[in-house]
Amino acid sequence: MITIYFFAGMKEAAGTPQMAWEIEDTTVKDIRKKVKETYPQLHQAESAMVAVNEEFAGEGDIVQTGDTVAFIPPVSGG
């Protein structure tokens, strides 16, 4: 199982802070697809950065069961 977190505007658009995907291994690219299928209103899933296990990840990076994925829309701290 892969846990996927949403924050800020994405969390509000999804109506939930997280979702789980029962899959052994996949890629960041396919996680975007899965999220868009699950929450069609989450347009930011196409453009937001993705972090895997708390580090920014690229599209082709492998994601495995037990990993934690987070969508990181443009940040606005400071």
């Binding site: 800020a8 972090a51 990181i72 940040v75 606005s76 701290g77 400071g78």
Partner: peptide, 9 residues
């Protein structure tokens, strides 16, 4: 901080 730290306002 405004580039890479996941904090939202």
């Amino acid at each position: 901080i405004k580039e890479i730290v996941p904090i939202w306002k």
